[in-house]
Simulated scan of single mutants.
Amino acid sequence: MDFLIKPYESAGPISLGMTKEQVRSVMPEKPDEKHDIRGAYTDFFGNSVVFVYYTQEHGICEAIEFCQPTKAVFNGRPLNGVPFIEAKQWLEQFDNALEDEENVGVTSNKLGIGLYAPDYDEDEGPGALVEAVIVFRKGYYD
């Protein structure tokens, strides 16, 4: 399944700002009730490997995280499951001020997108793949 990213708006059928009930109504599967990531403030959709994070105050979607087999697609190109350096270079075309998260990935505050590639190392692991992509609301990391 492909989730098309619209910065600071949505990813696939999930819009930032939706309630937990709204998110669950647009997903093709039920969330896994046995996960323990952030407790009641997270839905985990196991078949899609999609995490949806909610604010504690109001239970509104503030971030969406994707892992394989689901593809997070930005401007026609998948960002996860591809070499980190390719995905980073793609994002740099739209945001030349990416924040490097040493040995973890990069974050674009301009686009509201983060790439997670813990195995990336310029010298030892240049072909490491992006393991996860997060799409987040403005102020999520403040």
Rank of each mutant, 00 (worst) to 15 (best):
F44P: 00
G46Q: 10
G46C: 11
S48K: 14
V49Q: 13
V49N: 15
Y53E: 03
Y53I: 12
Y54D: 05
Y54P: 07
T55A: 13
T55S: 15
Q56H: 14
G59M: 08
G59P: 04
I60P: 00
C61A: 15
A63P: 00
I64Y: 15
I64D: 15
E65Q: 14
C67W: 14
P69W: 00
T70K: 04
K71T: 04
A72W: 04
V73M: 07
V73E: 06
N75V: 06
G76L: 01
R77S: 12
R77H: 12
G81A: 01
V82F: 08
V82S: 04
P83G: 08
F84T: 10
E86A: 05
A87V: 06
A87E: 09
Q89G: 02
Q89V: 00
Q89T: 05
L91M: 11
L91F: 11
E92G: 02
F94D: 08
N96P: 04
A97S: 10
A97C: 07
L98R: 01
E99F: 08
E99H: 11
E99T: 12
E99M: 10
E102I: 03
E102T: 09
E102W: 09
V104C: 06
T107S: 09
N109C: 01
N109L: 03
N109V: 00
K110D: 11
K110N: 13
K110F: 08
G112Q: 05
I113L: 08
G114Y: 05
